[in-house]
Structure formats: structure tokens, C-alpha cells
Design a protein around this nucleic acid. Structure first.
Lengths: 208, 208
DNA sequence: GGTGACATACTCCCATGGGGAGTACTCCCC
DNA sequence: GGGGAGTACTCCCCATGGGAGTATGTCACC
């Protein structure tokens, strides 16, 4: 590496957007917030630092433009940047990780009330539905022809994953709510859903 | 708050485990790694600090035991801790967040080769399968009667979610691989899967 | 009874990242 | 010509990630 920092995954995420077209940092953060953030959430303040790192690495060039007395910096990918991106794409990377405060609340639900749990499940469901509506709107936009047709095929793969996730979340929340509704108020002795456990066990047919 | 730090979500996660029974910090980190880490991943070094914070807040007590010349600290929840936990469970918390380096690679796949993408999809699928096997083993253990029967019902709810997620991931990886297999080597002009887009759009029936 | 290997039981520290506050200009509408 | 939304950033504190390091106890096996 040309000196100093080594590129992080976020660096390559930024580089990948620059591979599509040059962007100003502000546009870059917006692009990230509207698409990438769903599976690679990062703080906006840090995103502003990434393009500078890319320039230091020789992966991008910076061009300062002026509108009146306000300056903006537009970044573009270099051939070396494209090579680095291609090399990174050939590596595999960390598997998906889930982070859910709401699921944590479900996990500890026996220390609270039944209503608390139902509320949490309702919030999860509402979130999943909201995602579905947003994803549907984006899909409809693409069906009508979007801004980057050459990116539509991969976008569809990713969109399908996100849609599958939120759909599974919605279904799960409905299933769980139905079960919890039948629970007694005292959560210290609850009926066990043997069928659900058996279903999970059956996902490994080889398991003894 | 009794002074100093305010409890974080990780504090309540720790408190929730202490609500089940007293644990030493070492046991606590192991419990977290084997269950909680799936939906609330945190660095082990930080988990060692949490119980101390709980003591400072009056939510837990620490008892130092000795085995020979080695000391261990066992933490137990206080009534005040139980009240705080119950109050926290009545709040809703942040929705699920996904973090996937692999999905990021799919998103940027048009800058790499078709084989890179197939490799990434294979890695995702392998991870999902591995999860299914682990979850199945845990479910089978529970079906045979586990250590905390009073926790089994909520554990089943959470387990079902994790299982649904990994199952959806596995299916998606299979679906995506099949599509990508038919793509040409040149990824700059790819066929668009209109059916998939339509499916995503249809998840919002109200959408115009 | 000696000696690994593995489990238990932590502490410390640096760099990274999260997240919010703050600044200022530009464009457009009313 | 005044206000508000959008553009274009910078700065900084603190929490967290993640790895290195230290030491003791237990058990199997030769």
C-alpha cells in the first residue's frame, strides 16, 4: 500500500460506488444511506474520510470544483483503484451478521410482561412492513427504468435478499404473536412449541 | 442512575442473563458467545466490564470466591436490577440491522468476474447451511430436555427466527447462483430478472 | 509424579468507528 | 428579500472492537 492506512471494507464500498461514476462526498454519503446502508451501515462522519484515504492510496483522484464561494470535491476512480476493487471482489469476506435489540428483548421476555413482548413483536412487524413498502417502491421505480440500467441485475439480486429477509421477519412476527397471545400472564411456566423445535431440528436431516 | 455511567443495551443483555442465575464473568462471556452473540454480537473484552457497571448501578452484587490462589467473581442480580430490567423490557428498541460484507460484494459484483460472484454466493450458502446444522443440534438438545426449561419457550421463538433467517439465506443463495450461472462472462450487460422485481413490488399491494 | 493440553479467569491497551454538534453557503419559492 | 430545504462539509468525544498478555486450576496419560 502506497503509505499509511490499509483500505477497510468501507473503503472498498466507497470505491465500488466510484466505479459507477464520479461523485462528490455529499452525493456519496447519500448514495450509501439510500442503498448500501441496508447491509453495510456506517456513520456518515466516517464516510467523509474514506475518499481521502482512497486518494492517499492512489485508488481515486480528487477534483475541487467551485460554485460561487462554496467548494466541493468530486472523486473519481483510477485504473489502479479498479484493479484493487477487482482483487477485493475475488476474496470472500465475513458472513452476514445480525444485530437486533428487539430480538434481544424477545430472548429476555420471560423477565417482563406478556404485553411487553407483544409490543416488541408488533414493532418488529411494523418495521418489516415498512421495509417491504420501501423496497416495493424501489422495485417499481426500477421496473419503469432507473438511472443505472447496467447495475439493475445485481441490484435485483441484493433487493431480493433484503425483501426475503423482511418478508421472513414479517411472517415470523405474525407467527410469534399468535403463539404469545395464548400464553398465560405468568411467564415463568410457558407451554413449549415442540413443533417449532422439531422443524429447526429437521433442517439438518443428517443430525442423528 | 446511581452515579457515573448509564446502562447500555449490552448492560441489559448482561443483566438479563444474571436474571436467570448468578454467573462468573467467564461463564457470562461463554453464555453470550453461545447464544446472544447471534443477534447481539459484542467483543468479549467489553463483556468483562459490564458486570462491574451493573454493580456500580446497584443492579448486581459481586461475590469474590477462591479456588486455591485463583480468584473468581460471581455476580448476582439485585431486586433493583430486576426492576430496571423489567422497565427496559417495556421499551421497544432499535429494529434489526444486517451487516454483510458478502452482500456488499454481490452489490458491487459487476466490477469483478462472474466466478467471484459465484464464489461469494457459495460462501454465503455454506455459512447458512452451517448455521442450520448448529441450530438443529441445539434444537435437538432442547427436545431432549435442556438446562433451563423455564426459558425454553422464549428460546424457541428466538431460535425459530434465526432458523428462518438462515433458511431464507440458503434459499436465496441457491436462487441467485442459478441466475448468475446463466449470465455471460461480460458483466457489463446483464439480463434483468423482471419477475423478481415484480415480486418485490407486489409485497406492497397498495403501491399504486 | 511429571508434563502438556485445555479450561478458567481475567487485565490492558490501541486504533477504529459511532454519532452528534456545528458551520456555512446556495437555490428556490413565496 | 426572507425563510427553508438542500448541499457540503469539519470536528471531536467517547464507546467499542479486537487482539495480546498473564496466570492458575484440572485432568489425562505416560
Amino acid at each position: 500500500m502506497s503509505r499509511g492506512q490499509t483500505p477497510t471494507t468501507t473503503s472498498y464500498a466507497t470505491l465500488g460506488l466510484l466505479a459507477v461514476q464520479p461523485w462528490s462526498t455529499y452525493e456519496l454519503t447519500n448514495q450509501i444511506r439510500r442503498s448500501l446502508a441496508r447491509f453495510w451501515p456506517r456513520a456518515a462522519s466516517k464516510l467523509y474520510e474514506e475518499p481521502r484515504k482512497l486518494v492517499a492510496l492512489g485508488y481515486a483522484t480528487a477534483e475541487t470544483q467551485h460554485q460561487g464561494r462554496r467548494r466541493r470535491t468530486v472523486y473519481a476512480i483510477t485504473p489502479e483503484g479498479r484493479r484493487a476493487l477487482a482483487a477485493w471482489l475475488a476474496t470472500t469476506g465475513a458472513p452476514p451478521a445480525l444485530e437486533s435489540e428487539q430480538l434481544l428483548r424477545v430472548f429476555l421476555a420471560d423477565q417482563g410482561t406478556r404485553q411487553d413482548l407483544l409490543d416488541t413483536l408488533a414493532a418488529t412487524r411494523a418495521w418489516a412492513r415498512e421495509r417491504a413498502v420501501v423496497d416495493a417502491a424501489i422495485a417499481r421505480e426500477h421496473l419503469g427504468g432507473g438511472p443505472f440500467p447496467q447495475r439493475l441485475a445485481v441490484n435485483t439480486l441484493v433487493g431480493r435478499y433484503l425483501s426475503d429477509m423482511s418478508e421472513a421477519t414479517e411472517r415470523w412476527a405474525d407467527w410469534a404473536s399468535e403463539i404469545v397471545r395464548d400464553w398465560p400472564d405468568d411467564l415463568s411456566e410457558l407451554p413449549v412449541d415442540t413443533d417449532a423445535l422439531q422443524m429447526i431440528a429437521d433442517r439438518d436431516p443428517a443430525g442423528r
